[in-house]
Amino acid sequence: MSVTRSDVEHAARLCRLEFSPDELETLRGELGRILEYVEKLRELDVTEVEPTLYGLAGSTPLREDVPGEDTLAREDALAGAPDEENGHFKVPGVL
């Protein structure tokens, strides 16, 4: 399974990362080798096999609909914010 440059670029766009042309080429090679290695999974016949999606069996627990005590004071919520304005988190304009 060879990974194309545009595959790598597409993935980079999706996860909001940027690579120099050299880095992109190195990454293409590395991902290619890893994906080549994982190709061995194709040897397995998994047609009748259910995937194991969770670390634990069972049903997800349900919480009662009661407001909790974990709500933060606004100063604490904003304490780590790189930028804020008027009690809001602030980012460069979206639109």
């Binding site: 994982v38 999974l41 194709r42 397995l44 998994v46 096999v49 259910e50 995937p51 194991t52 999606l53």
Partner: peptide, 11 residues
């Protein structure tokens, strides 16, 4: 990839 890996995980 992902789904096949999770099936291998079952095995």
């Amino acid at each position: 990839y992902y789904l096949r890996a999770q099936k291998a995980r079952t095995l």
